[in-house]
């Protein structure tokens, strides 16, 4: 039972469209295109903020959010969402996806009576856990109702400027 066997040697960044980028560890600060390796630098300064320097061009970057192994990166004004997977977690994902056939959904209900101020998602939008779905005014405060799961919105029942009771259905999310 050699210990080294279990050291993580490779990581995969899995995009939301299931494109897979693999990086070997320790992580190199270069990216290979064809036969050439190009240096990547992550930098920050007063004028530009945080940016990546690659092939003599600066690209603005921002870490929009991260939770656990999920990262949303704003790169040159476009957001990308990745989960970082190890070889085993990738395998595990495949195993679980094949055994868990049925689609599960999450129903978001109003946590308290109030008035819907704004609905921030539409049917078909992809949401991450922690993302606001609906703004509900109650107790004279605007409350963001946030998504407890990653998923796709399948139904939006909340309508702006309507009153809801506690436990009224607001949004349905497909996991």
């Amino acid at each position: 039972m050699g210990n080294e066997k279990l050291q993580i040697k490779k990581l995969y960044a899995l995009s939301s469209e299931n494109r897979k980028y693999s990086f070997s560890l320790p992580l190199k600060h270069t990216i290979r295109i064809g036969k050439r390796e190009y240096e990547v630098k992550l930098k920050a300064d007063e004028k530009y903020g945080t940016y990546i320097l690659w092939k003599n061009r600066k690209y603005p970057v921002e870490i929009v959010r991260s939770s656990q192994n999920k990262y949303e990166i704003l790169f040159n004004d476009i957001s990308y969402t990745f989960t970082i997977e190890t070889p085993f977690s990738l395998q595990r994902m495949k195993v679980l996806n094949s055994t868990r056939g049925k689609i599960e959904k999450e129903i978001i209900k109003a946590p308290m009576p109030g008035k819907i101020i704004d609905v921030l998602v539409r049917e078909g939008s992809v949401v991450l856990r922690g993302e606001p779905l609906v703004i509900l005014e109650a107790m004279k405060m605007q409350n963001e109702i946030i998504s407890p799961v990653h998923g796709t919105i399948v139904k939006v029942l909340a309508k702006p400027n309507t009153n809801v009771m506690k436990d009224d259905l607001l949004v349905e999310i497909k996991l």
């Binding site: 990581l11 980028y21 990086f23």
Partner: peptide, 25 residues
Amino acid sequence: YYFNSEYEEMLAAWLATKLFVEENL
């Protein structure tokens, strides 16, 4: 609706991986 060059997503993936490595490994 938007344009990204061939390598932009890969660079973003690299950054995500780098952050993961820094935070966890």
